[in-house]
Design a protein around this nucleic acid. Structure first.
Lengths: 324, 324
DNA sequence: TTGAAAGCGCTAACAT
DNA sequence: ATGTTAGCGCTTTCAA
């Protein structure tokens, strides 16, 4: 019941393991009949070439790592889905690790991937606070997704150019008569968080709005964070509209909006971030900032398919404001 | 720039590679100072033990395969998420392959996993039609999820006992006055599909309903399939309620229901399958058959953690009818 | 046309 | 306490 190897096949057939190796590689230097016989026997025995041995010999292992905070949020799920499909097409193995935006978990995952000699890692970098060390990925090709770690600006990144869309969202709300617009978004330790907030502020300024400080809420981007800030803002009655800057946050805010809308007649406008399919189905359609998942995943797949030497170039894809 | 190995460290330090090996394993048989020196140098050089070499030596590779039709449907996403978390905790690598319910893709994925010596595979088996061969997984431990392939009834399976809940769903609709209830579900080539349909039929019979054949729709369980059958049923006006038997189907049916509800005042009752979080948010809450994802994933994680020898026992978890 | 040897990184089993 | 050898599965190089 042990593994079928070229040696065991060779033994079985009473020939050398090299002949088996050549026969399985369809080498013309082995007798036609022997070749056929070997291939037949290999099939019968259920022989599978050991990728492990090949890697030991020096073949680049076809392994891609994917590090995500979670895989339930539809943005991450879609990205993982598209990456998995692309990897299947490129006969790469996709190894997924969850970080929950935790640095320790992230580093552990990176270590594991190094152990198996993963060639590339696509990761949503976890947030670092001050003195914590930068993630270490050894010789693996790293592609940062959505966010960029401050200390690794040399590594390739796939970012979302969401500034214009966020700006437009604010303008849209202002044009609709909203004077008090709140922003709930990811903390500004990462460039993406800062950029989103800045886009919001610029939009407000352009619309001639004065945004109270209490209406700017940033923090670790989680469902719970979005939900609690949204509840707080709604209950305080200090804003008539909210703009989100983060996938999880957006869902959290949405849940708060829906819950509160059952109690009061007071409507609060809300523009989400990310575009899970159900945003079209909820509450007569949720307006949102749509992030180009497919493009991101396609580009990521191309980058992990690059040869060992080639270096991947960063890229940025535009987000779109979807009004419903 | 090449990989740091025990040999390269040994060279660097002018000692034998075995001393390095022992030092890194914290063996007491090596001088305390040497041990410390080696460990320090290894850290400096960024040494990572090669999992590949360990597997070559005979260590069981800590690799788990996960084969899903897709990873976007929230049930699969949640399962993958929980499995990934569990695997991280058990220091296993989780390799995900998408099958799209296609047999060829499924077999390719299985072959890849055999190549890397995956110890276990958790898979939602793709549907087979008649003469197609059974999936071949070599010596890997196979755990079938949700559905069970007819020809592999010996392999372990994690199933959902949804009969009672489906039955209850029909009863509930009948009690609410519905006389014409449609069923849209997975095809009956797999036991799960048959079971669901049977549960529906038994429920209808118990309620004294005579279900027209045109109201029973089964087929390959996809979003599009559910959507088109639902549209057709709604437009024909032959039913006042629908029950779903499949995750993707359920979302497809829901999309049709929502689309049609914008045009007519005629309400059609609908009981979904699976419980993505947004079912609570859509259309004042969608009633559904809730499948115990967490329990399934937990059990799956336990099964893949078993030693090579131990065999995993099948299990079944009860689904619940959630009324909203 | 076939076979034998060597080596990828690692450790158990023997030397020393 | 440290070093040497051998072997896991495979292919490249060299020999017959």
């Amino acid at each position: 019941m042990s593994r079928v190897t070229i040696k065991s096949i060779a033994n079985d057939l009473g020939i050398s393991h090299m002949t088996v190796s050549r026969a399985l590689a369809n080498s013309p230097k082995v007798q036609k009949e022997t070749r056929a016989a070997v291939q037949k026997r290999a099939r019968e025995l259920g022989y599978v070439k050991s990728a492990v041995a090949m890697v030991m010999r020096g073949d680049a292992p076809k392994i891609v790592g994917l590090l995500l905070p979670n895989i339930v949020n539809e943005f991450y799920a879609r990205f993982a889905n598209d990456m998995a499909a692309a990897c299947d097409a490129q006969s790469q193995q996709l190894i997924i690790h969850l970080t929950n935006d935790d640095l320790t978990a992230q580093q552990q995952a990176l270590d594991r991937l190094q152990e198996v000699q993963a060639a590339s890692v696509v990761m949503v970098p976890a947030l670092r606070h001050g003195n914590e060390g930068a993630p270490f990925a050894g010789t693996m090709r790293v592609i940062e997704l959505i966010r960029q770690d401050n200390d690794t600006e040399s590594t390739a990144a796939l970012l979302v150019d969401d500034g214009p869309a966020i700006n437009e969202a604010v303008t849209h709300l202002a044009n609709a008569g909203h004077k008090d617009i709140a922003y709930i978004g990811a903390n500004h330790e990462l460039s993406s968080g800062r950029n989103r907030l800045n886009a919001f502020l610029r939009g407000a300024e352009a619309a001639g709005l004065n945004v109270a400080e209490s209406l700017i809420r940033t923090g670790v981007p989680t469902f719970a964070m979005g939900r609690s800030h949204a509840k707080n803002i709604i209950d305080s009655g200090t804003a008539t509209a909210m703009v989100c800057g983060g996938f999880e946050i957006s869902n959290g805010v949405l849940s708060a909006v829906l819950e509160r809308s059952n109690r009061t007649t007071q409507e609060i406008a809300f523009i989400g971030y990310g575009d899970p399919s159900f945003y079209d189905w909820v509450d007569n359609g949720v307006s949102t900032i749509q992030v180009p998942v497919t493009e991101l995943a396609e580009r990521a797949a191309k980058m992990v398919a690059l040869e060992a030497g080639e270096s991947a170039a960063s890229a940025s894809f535009a987000a779109r404001l979807i009004l419903r």
